[in-house]
């Protein structure tokens, strides 16, 4: 079957914030998604997912966009349409999708509030899909966050096991408890000995 050629990718550039992450950056436009993937009544263990994006010279990147897409605590992805014209709607239920820029927190951190996802099925460990965009990146970059404290599930994960063993650690988020809050730290390295594994879809 003849296929249409895809529309080529271009960089998100440095000036996305007033459209893609307006509320986070204080621009006068609303945001359809933000740092929160859950609503108050979503069942599941609340976690914070946070980290920094590092360039090849070891500097933190201040103008990246990070998007998360994940299953709920039972391992189900949301299928119901997303409604409501701001991210602060409280009746959306479990969204499973979030977006932040790295330009507003100290150290150019990104930070999300979400829940720990369940495994989505046989041969799949709990994970979060991560999409990364930034000035200087001509294409979206897709990677996955796995949980370092799930070694047994990780050992069964088909995708993680397809990654060369010496690079698997780049996909592991590490648990840290801070004042009763459960944080998973997931740094993304564009280059260097810890270069994050990126996937092609």
């Amino acid at each position: 079957m003849e296929q249409l050629r895809q529309t080529p990718s271009q960089t998100v550039g440095p000036f996305f914030a007033y459209a893609l992450t307006a509320e986070q950056y204080g621009y006068p436009y609303d945001s359809l998604m933000n740092h929160t993937l859950v609503s108050l009544d979503t069942p599941g263990q609340r976690i914070v997912v946070t980290g920094q994006v590092w360039d090849g010279a070891g500097a933190t990147i201040s103008d990246a966009v990070v998007e998360l897409w994940q299953a709920d605590a039972q391992g189900h992805y949301r299928t119901a349409p997303i409604e409501g014209n701001t991210a602060t709607h409280t009746d959306r239920g479990f969204l499973g999708f979030g977006r932040v820029g790295t330009g507003t927190l100290p150290g150019h951190r990104y930070q999300f509030t979400t829940l720990k996802p369940g495994a989505t099925g046989e041969g799949s460990a709990p994970h979060i899909n991560v999409m990364l965009m930034m000035r200087g990146s001509l294409r979206n970059l897709y990677t996955r966050l796995y949980f370092a404290d799930e070694p047994e599930a990780n050992a069964q994960d088909i995708l993680l096991n397809a990654v060369p063993a010496e690079r698997r650690a780049t996909l592991l988020a590490h648990r840290k408890e801070v004042n009763g809050e459960i944080r998973y730290i997931f740094d993304i390295h564009m280059q260097g000995s810890d270069e994050t594994v990126f996937f092609e879809l």
Binding site: L32, D55, G56, A57, A59, I61, W69, Y77, R78, T79, A80, P81, I82, E83, G96, F97, G121, N129, M134, R135, G136, S137, L138, L141, I158, L159, A162, V163, R167, M190, Q191, E195, T196, V197, F198, F199, E200, L201
Partner: peptide, 24 residues
Amino acid sequence: LRSPTQPLMPVRELIRDLSMPVFG
């Protein structure tokens, strides 16, 4: 300084379903 130096790993055969909800 911002592009991966390692080739991307092709994974579409390893992923069953990545459907997303649509926006209403």
